[in-house]
Computed example of a mutant assay.
Amino acid sequence: MVALDGPSGTGKTTVARKLADRLSAGYLDTGAMYRMVTLAVLRAGIDPADAAAVAGLADGVDLEIGTSPQRPGFRLGGEDVSAEIRGPEVTKAVSPVSAVPHVRELLVARQRRIIAEVLGEVGGIVVEGRDIGTVVVPDSPLKVFLTASADVRAARRSSQDTAAGRQSTVADARESVERRDRLDSSRTASPLRAAEDAVPVDTSELSIDQVIVALCELASHRGLLAGCSAEAAR
């Protein structure tokens, strides 16, 4: 198992999916789960800052999340919300929703069940998020904390928004990622931080393929998933 943490704009999702695919492992995007709850909150007309109301709604949220790195799939009440959960409204509201302790308790328990199921079925999984190595699976044999400079992260986020048809300048994107960092790092429940034994990987000057090679080498050094490095270099 690989626990992959880090702030937004570091390439977590792309790296996690490609790494899981390369390893023939399962994949879990825990951030998408918080985004689905956030979307449910917004659709219900609840103020994301109203912790009690958010907690009450979270108990009844019907979410489904796929664990295939090729097509993970995100369904809320049976509806595919893969695109909607990446929109600016959800992005702006996800931090306060994620900070609600009851929401985190519910989703962490769900994440642990999914991880156990996938490990039992396929033998391996790459899990990405912000508290995987510190809270969700602190006993993971390989914990990685991705980082990147603020400028690089802002440029990446702006490019992603533009590609998705959303207007975004680099300045807007930088303000967004820095705001998210402040909120995620300062929350009381499971703040964003690297686990003490996590390996930091700065992706600022690395291509996706270079990051994959670096992670495969780490996995090999830990005695995990033999042959990964050779496969990643192809």
Rank of each mutant, 00 (worst) to 15 (best):
R174I: 02
V201D: 10
R156K: 14
G9S: 11
A150D: 11
Q111C: 15
L76R: 01
G165I: 13
V41W: 02
Q111E: 11
M36F: 07
A49T: 10
V61W: 09
P96D: 03
V122H: 11
I212K: 04
V54L: 09
V97S: 00
Y27K: 06
L57H: 12
A214Y: 03
E205T: 10
K92H: 09
L39P: 00
D21T: 04
Q210W: 12
P191I: 01
G45R: 04
E128A: 06
V94W: 00
C216N: 00
D139M: 08
T67M: 07
E89T: 13
R104M: 06
R182T: 11
T188M: 12
A195W: 05
D59E: 06
V81Q: 07
G77E: 11
V108H: 02
V37L: 13
G227N: 09
R174C: 03
G11H: 05
D202G: 05
S229E: 15
T203G: 07
M36Y: 06
L183F: 03
R113Q: 13
L107N: 02
T30R: 11
K92F: 04
L119T: 07
G6V: 01
P96N: 09
A109W: 12
D151N: 09
F74M: 05
A16E: 04
G227V: 07
R130D: 02
A99K: 03
A25K: 09
L224V: 11
V135W: 02
E105V: 09
D202P: 06
I114E: 08
L76M: 09
G77A: 11
E178L: 14
R75H: 14
T30Q: 04
A219R: 00
S8N: 08
G165C: 13
A148T: 03
L119M: 10
D59G: 07
T147K: 15
A32C: 08
T169M: 06
V15H: 00
V136S: 05
R86T: 01
A51S: 15
I132S: 13
V94Q: 02
Q210T: 03
P96M: 14
L218P: 00
T38M: 08
S95H: 03
I208W: 09
T30I: 07
V199M: 14
R86V: 03
A32Y: 13
V213Y: 00
A16V: 08
K92N: 01
Y34N: 02
E205G: 13
K143F: 00
T13N: 07
R153N: 08
V54N: 02
A219H: 00
H221P: 02
D197W: 09
K18W: 11
G223S: 03
